[in-house]
Amino acid sequence: MATIIKSYEPTFWDKLYFPALLKGLMVTIKHFFRQKVTIQYPDERHIPPDGYRGLHRLNKYPDERIKCVACEMCAAACPSNCISIIPGPSPWDDGKERYPVRFDINLLRCIYCGFCEMACPEGAIELTEIYDFSNYSRDDLVIDKDGLLGVYELTKKQNYYTKKSHSPASLPFKTERT
């Protein structure tokens, strides 16, 4: 069924075009004085809410013992198989037999789902709020045990982003291109 649409007859003010022009400019002017949404990233950084899943860390007890008992539950739960652990006998006399000799996470494989955190019976592996990191080679983005403990040192006291001196250069990665 055809519907007849009557064309709009422009009035005197429409023919002037200025009111329409000013109307359009008003939108621009209104946005000019609104609050700015751009975050000047390297200088000011978004602080993610609690529970954000970023770079991993390995937790320690207050007396510097590593919480991990190398049960490999995280590696079993990992959907992308990015965690590899080599267990060994624990160096501390605390009733726990196992201890990770090596603990490597391939950060490029990882999809930051947090399943490892959920699977861990000791609360050893945890995902921190760190989100801005990249590197020049794939090998440099495999984080080892010392790196994970280094991330713990960076994030144990306060949110990583609340401290001004924290930058991607302070993360335990090799930053030089090889």
Partner: peptide, 23 residues
């Protein structure tokens, strides 16, 4: 430059862009 994440946050991409600029 490789950017990890699934997907990476926009800041991660900006960081990699700055790494490219350094290169």
């Amino acid at each position: 430059v490789y950017v990890p994440g699934c997907p990476p946050r926009p800041e991660g991409v900006v960081e990699s862009l700055m790494k490219i600029q350094n290169l």
